[in-house]
Simulated scan of single mutants.
Amino acid sequence: MSSLPLAVARRHRRGVRHTLDVRVSPYAYVAPFLLLFCAFGLFPLAYTAWVSLHDWTLLSDEHAFVGAANYATLLADGYFWNAVFNTLSIGVLSTAPQLVLAIWLAHLLNRPLRFQTLFRVSLLLPNVTSVVAVVVIFSQLFGRDFGLINWVLSWFGAGAVDWAAGTATSHVALSTMIMWRWTGYNALIFLAAMQAVPRELYEAATLDGASGFTQLRRITLPMIRPTIVFVVVVSTIGAMQIIAEPLLFSASSGAGGVGASGGPDRQYQTLALFVYEQGFTKFDFGYAAAASWLMFAAVVLVAGVNYLLTRRMRGGLA
C-alpha cells in the first residue's frame, strides 16, 4: 500500500518536468540570442535615437537637448541629399543587373554540365575575396592613364575616361565592383531554389516544344518567386548600406578627396559614408545619429516598396 503514494508522487514529478520542458525550454533555448540582441542590437538602437535628440559632440562635456533640430538641419543639408542620390543611383546600377545576371547564371548551372561542382564553387570566390583587394584591383582596371578599361575603349576611338572624377562614371565603376562580388552568391541562392522545382514540369514543357527561355519564363521564375522576393529585399538593404567600396575607391584610384567625403566633389558619397564622416571625422555624434536613423527609415521604406513591387510580379510571371 505504501508504494502507491510513491508512484503517484513520481508521476506528478514527471508531469511537472514535462510541463516545464514544454513551456520553459523553448524560452531557455532562445534566451542567449535575446540577451545578445538586447545588449548589442536593441540597446544601441534606442541609445542612438536618444543621442540624435542632443547636441552631442566628442569635445563637449554637456550634451544639450535639441529635440528634432538635428533632423531639421539634416533635411536641409545638401550634402545629405547628395548622399541619398548617390546611394540610390549606385544601388539601382548594381542591384538590377546583378539579379538578372544571377538568375541567368543559375539557369545555366541548373542544367547537366561537366565540372558542375567546380563552376558552382567558383561562383563564391568573388564573395570570399577581401573587399580591399577587390577595390584596389578594380580601381586599377578603371584607372585613367593605364587602366585596362580605358585601353579597351581606346580600340573604339574613345578618349581616356577619369572614372573616379565624374558622378556617372564613378557610379558605374563602383556598381561593377559590387556586382562582381555578389552576383555569384545570389546565383547560388537562385540555383538552390531552381533545384527544388519538379523536373517533371521541364520534361512536359520539352515535350510540348517549349524552348529554354520559355521554360525559364513560364516555369522557373514563377516557381522561385519567393526566393526572388527574398534576394531583392536583401540586396536592396545591402545596397543602402554601401560604405567600404566608396571609402577605399578614392585612395586606390589616386583621386583627390581621399576619405569619407566620397571624392573631391562628393560624387560618390553614400548614406553610410555620410554617417561615417559626421560621426568619425567631424565627431558630431548627434548629427550622425540623426542621419543614421533617417538612413534606417530609408532602408525600411525602400525595402518595403521593393517587396511590394516584387510581389506584384506574380501576375506578370504567371
Rank of each mutant, 00 (worst) to 15 (best):
D208C: 05
L191C: 11
G159R: 08
A165P: 00
R217I: 02
G157F: 03
M194P: 05
V134A: 06
P222M: 05
L216D: 02
A133H: 05
V161G: 10
S235H: 00
L153T: 02
A239D: 09
A164Q: 08
L191I: 00
T206P: 03
G143T: 03
L141Y: 14
T167N: 08
A160L: 08
G238M: 06
V152H: 02
I137W: 09
A196D: 15
A193G: 06
M194D: 13
V134R: 07
L216V: 06
R144D: 01
V132A: 09
M177K: 06
Y185C: 00
M240K: 05
T236A: 11
T183S: 00
A133V: 14
S170E: 01
V229M: 11
A204F: 04
A196E: 14
R218T: 10
V135H: 07
Q195V: 13
G147K: 06
T176E: 15
S130M: 02
V231A: 12
S175C: 11
S211D: 00
E200S: 10
Q241D: 09
S175V: 15
S154N: 03
F190Q: 04
Q140S: 10
E200R: 14
V132Y: 12
M177G: 02
F138A: 12
V134C: 11
L188G: 10
Q140P: 07
G212I: 08
V152S: 08
R217E: 07
W155I: 03
W180C: 09
L174W: 08
T220M: 00
L153I: 07
A187T: 11
D145L: 12
V134N: 09
H171L: 12
A158L: 14
Y185L: 00
P198F: 05
A165Q: 04
Q241H: 07
R144Q: 12
H171T: 10
M177W: 03
G212R: 10
T167S: 06
R181W: 00
M179D: 07
N186W: 14
V234T: 06
F190H: 12
S235T: 09
A210V: 05
F146K: 15
F213Q: 04
F190M: 04
D208I: 02
F230N: 07
M177R: 06
A164R: 06
